[in-house]
Simulated assay, not measured.
Amino acid sequence: MDDVLRSVVEIAHRHLSPKAGAVLREDPDADLAALGLTSLRTVDFMVELEERLGVELPEEAIHAETFRTARTVADALRQLPRESAR
C-alpha cells in the first residue's frame, strides 16, 4: 500500500464504524457504500481529504465511481495535476 492509498484508508476509517474501518484496512478494494459511507459521510470524507492532503478535487472527479473504494479515491488523487495542490 503506497502513501496515497494509506492516507485515503486512514481518513476513510474516521468516517466509518470501527468494524467497517477494520475491513477497509484489510481490503482497500471494499465497497465504501457497503461499509456505511453514506452520501453525507462521503461529503465529509471528501472535505477532510482535500484539507489534509492539500488538494482540490475538480467537479468532474466528484461522482460515485471515484468514491466506490479507497483505491478508486487514491487513483483519482494520483491523477490530479500538480496545480490542484493548494
Rank of each mutant, 00 (worst) to 15 (best):
G36P: 10
D2H: 03
E48R: 14
R14C: 07
A70D: 00
V73W: 03
E50D: 04
R86D: 11
E51D: 13
R71H: 14
F67C: 08
A85C: 11
E59M: 04
V43S: 01
L57V: 08
A85G: 11
L53A: 09
R78M: 12
R82A: 06
S17D: 15
F45S: 01
L49E: 03
S39Y: 02
M1K: 10
R52V: 03
V8K: 04
R68M: 07
R68S: 10
T42N: 05
P58Y: 02
A33Q: 10
E50P: 07
D44L: 14
P81Y: 05
H15P: 12
L37T: 00
S84C: 14
A76D: 04
D31I: 05
P18E: 13
V8Q: 04
T72F: 12
L37V: 01
A85H: 15
R52G: 03
V43A: 03
T38M: 06
F67E: 05
R14W: 00
R41N: 04
K19Q: 15
G21N: 08
E50S: 02
V43Y: 00
R52M: 02
V43R: 03
L40T: 11
V47R: 02
H13T: 10
A22H: 13
L53F: 06
D2E: 09
R25G: 14
T69H: 02
D44I: 06
L16P: 09
I62Q: 05
R71V: 11
R25V: 01
E59A: 09
R86K: 11
R41F: 01
V9H: 00
D31S: 09
H13D: 14
E65W: 05
L40Q: 11
E83I: 11
R71K: 12
A64N: 09
E10R: 05
D31K: 04
S7H: 09
L35D: 00
M1S: 11
A12C: 11
S7L: 05
L5D: 07
R71A: 14
P81D: 08
R71S: 14
L5S: 05
L80S: 10
E48I: 01
E26T: 13
D27G: 02
V43T: 07
F45N: 01
L37E: 01
A22G: 15
A76R: 13
D75G: 10
I11G: 04
V47Y: 00
R86E: 11
M1E: 14
M46A: 13
